[in-house]
């Protein structure tokens, strides 16, 4: 997941390294650090925005560690899913157990169906649906789509995937 965090540092030399070290020990991969050295909070501290990616499922041990070191953690925003993809399905989507199709993706733990638009023109005709999938990364998005591919195969649905360069 991707974590963005607002922290506050004491105005003293070496404080930034002091605050970033626990993140790296936590195996966080830093994406960006914005250090507002010219700004001061009403508490006289310096605000810093840090964004990093991590494979850990919980960051509370990291927050605890930072607070022990005297680094104020003001705001934390976790974004579990970094990639989004669209696919279109055609066929008897509802009658081939739509719930099962969605569940198979949701149960992976790395991807979810977050949007579904369904069009059913008439009872005897094929339905069409667009699925939006969120996944924790590019590889997982590919895995989720290939999982859908095998479901579509089994249920005789046509799966329309994005072109390669769209996923890359």
């Amino acid at each position: 997941m991707r974590v963005s965090m607002d922290i506050e540092l004491q105005d003293a030399p070496g404080q930034l390294v002091h605050a970033l070290k626990p993140i790296s020990e936590f195996k966080g991969n830093l994406v960006s650090v914005v250090h507002h050295h010219e700004k001061r909070t009403p508490r006289g501290t310096i605000p810093v925005q840090v964004v990093f990616e991590t494979e850990s499922l919980s960051i509370s041990p990291l927050i605890k560690k930072l607070e022990e070191l005297g680094v104020g953690v003001i705001r934390v925003n976790e974004e579990k899913y970094l990639e989004r993809g669209t696919v279109v399905l055609i066929g008897h989507i509802v009658h081939t157990d739509l719930e099962d199709t969605i569940d198979t993706i949701d149960k992976t733990g790395y991807a979810e169906v977050v949007e579904l638009h369904l069009s059913m023109p008439s009872i005897n005709k094929s339905s069409s649906a667009s699925f939006k999938l969120d996944a924790v990364g590019k590889k997982e998005l590919r895995d989720a789509i290939s999982l859908l591919r095998s479901i579509a195969n089994k249920k005789d649905l046509v799966l329309i995937e994005p072109i390669e360069s769209e996923i890359l």
């Binding site: 055609i90 069009s119 069409s128 649906a129 667009s130 046509v158 329309i160």
Partner: peptide, 11 residues
């Protein structure tokens, strides 16, 4: 041959 106009519109 199995592509529907609805699929094209959803896309």
């Amino acid at each position: 041959s199995r592509i529907t106009p609805e699929a094209l519109m959803l896309a």
